[in-house]
Design a protein around this nucleic acid. Structure first.
Lengths: 127, 127
DNA sequence: GCAAAAAAACGAAAGAATTCGTATTTTTTG
DNA sequence: CAAAAAATACGAATTCTTTCGTTTTTTTGC
């Protein structure tokens, strides 16, 4: 069984994935409207992007209706892991510690979140 | 005073930054040799990339010698923060917690590293 | 000093990513 | 049902990234 590996999403493609993760399965129009909140984008531009993403297996499309319904082919989790793993290699020489440090110093993180991160650490260590 | 903002480094550009952070200020030849450990790359290819990066203000170059010496224009830290911040927005809707979780579950992290991360959390919280 | 080597400059080709105009198909609505 | 609207398909222009061949400049070794 040959399963060609899915390419990393490009910049605009990631925007679309983000939207679909948030909205759930959607039409091109819905995605396009969300895109426009971020940056003016013609309808056919969004359409074309989504068609290409479908070819690349980043999205799957339900054609049973006339208005096609698109959704991400991979889970948010898997994609995020891929992206983080990639950045980890390329910018941090694989040091997760460094990356975590940068992530925490970039954004304010609430006490609640810090607590959850601690809990996570416990689990990693416990195992 | 107009300071045009530096663009995000592209893929190959990041490879070069990574090399320069590791080696310190270097000539094109040195960088090119390091590039070739990763992937066959012609000398002039590396040269051109570095020239473009200099135009874009990603690198600065010392031309006082005939062999120009290049170094990153920004610190490793600042660039990493930028990259993480960008990924945070684009793929994680700004949730540092989620990103940290993904980072930790992607790679094995040693007990020692986990301990250091804990310490870091303490500092963030203490403040 | 001169030929060979090393470095830089330049231009342009090849490849991707992004954008959008136009044409075609299907549905909606008056 | 006919016209308008909505959606998809298609192709192509544009822009950005990556690569490298050729030319020019400078240094080095004999």
């Amino acid at each position: 069984m040959v399963r060609k590996k899915v390419p990393q999403p490009t910049d605009r493609e990631l925007t679309i994935l983000r939207i679909l993760w948030d909205l759930g399965p959607s039409t091109v129009r819905q995605v396009n409207e969300a895109m426009n909140k971020d940056r003016a984008t013609g309808y056919t531009t969004t359409l074309k992007l989504m068609q290409i993403m479908t070819e690349k297996r980043l999205l799957v499309r339900d054609e049973s209706q006339w208005k096609h319904i698109y959704k991400p082919a991979m889970s948010e989790e898997r994609t995020q892991k891929q992206l983080v793993g990639d950045l980890l290699e390329r910018a941090f020489s694989g040091s997760a510690e460094k990356l975590v440090m940068r992530a925490l110093s970039t954004r304010k993180v609430s006490a609640k979140e810090l607590a959850r991160i601690r809990k996570m650490l416990d689990e990693f260590e416990g195992k």
